[in-house]
Design a protein around this nucleic acid. Sequence first.
DNA 1: CGAATGCTATTTGTATACAATAAGCTGCAT
DNA 2: ATGCAGCTTATTGTATACAAATAGCATTCG
Lengths: 224, 224
Amino acid sequence: MSRASERAYNNIRSMILSGELQPGSQIREEALAELCGVSRTPVRDSLRRLEAEMFIRRNDSQRSFVADWSLDDLEDAFQLRAMLEAHAAKRAASRITREQLGWLRFHNAQLKQAIDMPNPDVPKFLDHNRQFHAIILAAAASERLASMLGQVTEQPVVLRTARQYDLENLRRSHHDHDELLIAFDKRDGEWAAAVMTGHIRRAFHAYAEAHSTDTEIRKSNLAA
Amino acid sequence: MSRASERAYNNIRSMILSGELQPGSQIREEALAELCGVSRTPVRDSLRRLEAEMFIRRNDSQRSFVADWSLDDLEDAFQLRAMLEAHAAKRAASRITREQLGWLRFHNAQLKQAIDMPNPDVPKFLDHNRQFHAIILAAAASERLASMLGQVTEQPVVLRTARQYDLENLRRSHHDHDELLIAFDKRDGEWAAAVMTGHIRRAFHAYAEAHSTDTEIRKSNLAA
DNA sequence: CGAATGCTATTTGTATACAATAAGCTGCAT
DNA sequence: ATGCAGCTTATTGTATACAAATAGCATTCG
């Protein structure tokens, strides 16, 4: 995607993710155009894309609003995600190459290292975690699956609380990855799928907790 | 969506589905604009949408081509579809209302009627079949699931052969629906999911057969 | 007082002109 | 012949002007 269009997309997306654009609030093309320093044309492109990704919804008269997801919607998304990632793991188990396995091991070692120290480096953990999952998705070798997972992995949920991932959870994630590695090594798709399902379900509950906390904070802010 | 934009979208989409725009061929915005009698702006909107739906793909320099799916890709899509529809059936089993069940029965009776006659009315069958599945999807009550299923239900596969659905298959579909109805009635999500999986797998094989035949024909046409 | 109607302001949709980029070609050099 | 440079043409990207639609408001009529 070319310069202006891509800039607009990234800007708007991150404004939604960061909560700068509040869930439920209306969006006007021209306002965004000014914010992004481009014309309405690339903004419109971005809005269409974000609408497909369900970051934005439109009412019957084509006005756009930042999507506002309830806890139920969040669970719904995670249910879908668990199903799709498990499917990916199953496919990957029979297709993954030695080299890909090597990379999985590398990223898992790195993310362990990121939290096995006095001052845990959470961003580093998240980055290697992301890459770990990306490799599995690549090994699954299904373009459609990848495109669908893209729609449920990045949640448009505002987390004002500075993402307090508790270490215990991160360590468990690391162990899940370890087990996935063994399942892959043994080419056991069923096992890989089962581990992955649990892995994502745990992520959901961690997320849900953060989401409730955040919602509380937002509510009390509104009351004040 | 407003007039010009919607017109463009429907036109282009049906040109792809009908094979008027051949798989693999390049698409030029201006040409389509003329064909649809609108300017490039709504055409570009449509192309973006069709790209998200994987009817169209773009190369690295942003040129658009009609997607060309292999038999493997087709199977991939059906695998995803089977998984998602089974999931929908499972969710629907615990949420479906008496009224929705009534409509399911109605459409299933209608589609049976459409093929239980000397001159089977296949389009009528397909229409009621579509509505049958739509009701289940609605009962599943997951917007994201619906949006994902939209991406895999309408296959951008050219079927030049005038869709020779054999009657035996259609009858079996009807029986699957019957069984789904019982499963729903008993609120047995597992059963519903299992029946649905088989139902979609059968559809895949019917489709795959038609696809191979079509590919043969296309090849011999090219040779001539 | 409430509902309906028409006006105005706001917002989105479409067309078009122009800019940027990529593809294809021509001719030259090796 | 082959490959590369530079030009030309084809195609997409962006901005902008204008058209259409919609919402919000005020005014009027029942």
